[in-house]
Nucleic acid binder design. Structure first.
Lengths: 150, 150
DNA sequence: CTCTATTTAATTGTTTACAATTTAATGAGA
DNA sequence: TCTCATTAAATTGTAAACAATTAAATAGAG
C-alpha cells in the first residue's frame, strides 16, 4: 500500500473541502432564487418541481411521481393535497388497483404551465453560466444521482 | 439578435434539464448517506457541518458561524441549544458586546473530532469518484456559491 | 449626552423532508 | 379458498430551514 499519499485528515475535514457541504449550499441558494418567481404563481419550490413532473406526464400514481422526484408519500401526500386545494391537480383512487392514488392535472394546472414557462431561462441567467457549462454540470450531477439509491 | 437558437420551452421545462433539481436531489441523497455514519455520534447532518466549522475555529459568534454555514439564527439557535445539551458546545454572551453569543467547543466537543475523522473518506468512496473528479466538482460548486448571496 | 438607527440573537409561524408505523388492497403459495 | 407477504398511500413524530418579527445592546448623528 504505497498509494497512501492522500491529504491529511485535518485538511479533509475542512468545511470547504466537503463536497457534501458545497452541494447542500448550492441547492439551498438556488431554491432561494426561485422563491420570488414562484410565489406569484402560488407555488413553493417543491410544488414547482411536482408540477414540472406532471406537465411532462400526468395521470400517474403517487408512487411513480415520488420516484421521479425522489420524494416519498410522507412529503407528497400533504403537498398534493395542497395543490389539489389550489385547484391545480386532482387525486383519485385507481379503479384497477385501489391502493393507488392517481394524480392528474386540472384545467388550471395545465394553464399554469404557460405562466411558468419563463422561469427556467430567467434562473439560468441569474447564474453566470452559459448553456454549455450548465449542460456539463447537469451531466455530472446526473451521474451522481444514478448512484444515489444504493 | 441572431443568437436565439436556444432549445424550445418544452425542452427547457423538462425535469431532467433543470440544474436546480439535479442539485436538490444530489444534496438530499448525499445527506442521506451521512445519516448512518452520524447517528452513532449523536449528530444530525446540520450538527455535523456545524461541528466541522467549529473544529476549524471555535469561540466565534453565532453570526460568524451562520455566515460560514449559510444558516441564520432561526436555524442555528435551536441547533446550538441542542449541541449544548449534548455537551459538545458552550454558548456564552460576549463581555465586550453583549449582543453576541460566543460558541465554543467543550472537551467532549473536541474529542468528538477524533471519532468523526473517518467520515469524509468513507463518504467520498461511497460515490464512485476519484479525488481529482471530486476536486473539480467542488471548484465548480464554489464558483456557484460565491454568486449565491446576490 | 440624547435620540435614532443598526446589529445580534431569539422567537414565532410555516413549509419541507424523512423515518417509522398504520391501514387497506393486492398477490402468491399451500 | 385461505392465509401470509407485499405494496401503496396515509399518518405520526421529529428535525430543518427560512421569513418575519421582537428584544436588547451598541453605534452614530446632532
Amino acid at each position: 500500500m504505497n498509494d497512501k499519499l492522500t491529504v491529511p485528515a485535518s485538511e479533509r475535514m475542512k468545511l470547504d473541502n466537503q463536497i457534501c457541504f458545497a452541494f447542500y449550499v448550492c441547492s439551498k441558494e438556488i431554491i432561494k432564487k426561485y422563491r420570488p418567481l414562484l410565489t406569484p404563481l402560488g407555488l413553493t419550490y417543491t410544488g414547482y418541481i411536482t408540477m414540472l413532473a406532471l406537465w411532462e406526464k400526468d395521470k400517474i400514481p403517487v408512487k411513480a411521481l415520488g420516484e421521479k422526484l425522489y420524494l416519498d408519500s410522507g412529503t407528497l401526500t400533504p403537498l398534493l393535497k395542497k395543490l389539489e386545494s389550489q385547484g391545480f391537480v386532482k387525486r383519485s383512487r385507481s379503479e384497477i388497483d385501489e391502493r393507488q392514488v392517481i394524480v392528474s392535472l386540472t384545467e388550471a394546472g395545465h394553464e399554469l404551465q404557460q405562466k411558468a414557462a419563463a422561469i427556467p431561462e430567467r434562473l439560468v441567467h441569474s447564474f453566470e453560466m452559459d448553456e454549455v457549462q450548465a449542460k456539463q454540470m447537469i451531466e455530472s450531477l446526473h451521474f451522481m444521482m444514478k448512484q444515489a439509491p444504493c
